[in-house]
Design a binder for these strands. Sequence first.
DNA 1: GTGGTCTAGACCACG
DNA 2: GTGGTCTAGACCACT
Lengths: 125, 125, 125, 125
Amino acid sequence: MISFENLILDDKTPIYSQILMYIKRGIVSGTVTNNDELPSRRVLSALLGVNPNTIQKSYKMLEEEDLIESHSGTKSYMKLDNVKIEKIKKELVECDITDMISAIKQMGISKEETILLLEKYWNEV
Amino acid sequence: MISFENLILDDKTPIYSQILMYIKRGIVSGTVTNNDELPSRRVLSALLGVNPNTIQKSYKMLEEEDLIESHSGTKSYMKLDNVKIEKIKKELVECDITDMISAIKQMGISKEETILLLEKYWNEV
Amino acid sequence: MISFENLILDDKTPIYSQILMYIKRGIVSGTVTNNDELPSRRVLSALLGVNPNTIQKSYKMLEEEDLIESHSGTKSYMKLDNVKIEKIKKELVECDITDMISAIKQMGISKEETILLLEKYWNEV
Amino acid sequence: MISFENLILDDKTPIYSQILMYIKRGIVSGTVTNNDELPSRRVLSALLGVNPNTIQKSYKMLEEEDLIESHSGTKSYMKLDNVKIEKIKKELVECDITDMISAIKQMGISKEETILLLEKYWNEV
DNA sequence: GTGGTCTAGACCACG
DNA sequence: GTGGTCTAGACCACT
């Protein structure tokens, strides 16, 4: 069963998107693996304190990306393979890194300075 | 006159916010300096292909942060000093770096690997 | 539910402001009381023939003055107490009376004549 | 020459409208009479510290209501008769009084209470 | 021409 | 269905 206890919601980004990203990051990190069971819509909505419709939207998007499979009952399971995992990893990592680089470079900060900043903030997050 | 030719709009973030961030990053990088003239709402809206009101919103937020001087019937100018510049730099850099670190760490990627990725992508952006 | 059937809009004052004043006057007169339900933006906008966003602006200003309670997905309700009501009453009455006096005095009309005019027009409005 | 020294501009109402109303109230009070000379656009704009275009707009509206006459030079004169004066008086007084009554009645305040308030505030304005 | 404001309509998250 | 936000266009006062 996938755990959502490390998911802390902020109110700047859409909730369905935060849930989606949380799961995708779990896939990349290996805490979410093939055949893992997802909590039911009802349970997760209660756990996170958000509307069931919002959960439903997240699950639907996972389904559209062919990452989960909903069986006849209410249970849903991750449907992963190495190709999908690599694709997500590349997508997420590239996005996070290049977005940051793009923003940093616009401010005229050098690569060396960026690495220093990264070292500085790494353990504070 | 502040140049906006390097600003490419995406459709994920609010336009007014992208314009705001573009100017703030320019302040940090030094391409936007004190007393620089801002293009009028009409000119910039035509240049970027957005509504004048969207520009107005960006400018208004800059004024609320006391970064520009703006009076009816006259042009608008940047109103900066070193204290303001340092404050913005800290705000922007911290935000970009820590957001990235947070996302990367959730995926179980180490600091060393991150630095390698940063080196790899730095010149591609 | 607050009734808006006595609200007739003119086109000299901003609509959002007229709606705001209508509700405030209702608060003073006692026709709008604590916990009263406000019509939704859609309903009221259809009723008054204006854009939902205009209603939204009025409601937002009421919320900023802490006169209504409003959460996403739920109805909005008046949030009043005697202190707030007295404050609004003082604010509105003073404004209406002193504006009128100021205008009348500029025309060289005496207090006695004004009272006569007031008696004359009172039942015609 | 019509004096504008008692005109204090607020920034809530359009300036051209405030100037127009100031003159009309002067007509009603008798301080502005037939054949009175108006200051030139330039002089009045300097005196009030507003743009000549704004003065021009006020004068144009007076002309459209046939209340002033501009001679070949830059001088303008009031063009009044008793019928016009009575019409303006009725228009202004009725408007001020009935607007106030309308607002006050909406708050459930009685005629007697209104007269007391009027007495109270009369000398404070 | 300049900046400022109001109204309008579409879209989003949420219950 | 609810409220909240973003973009859009028209209009106004003013230089």
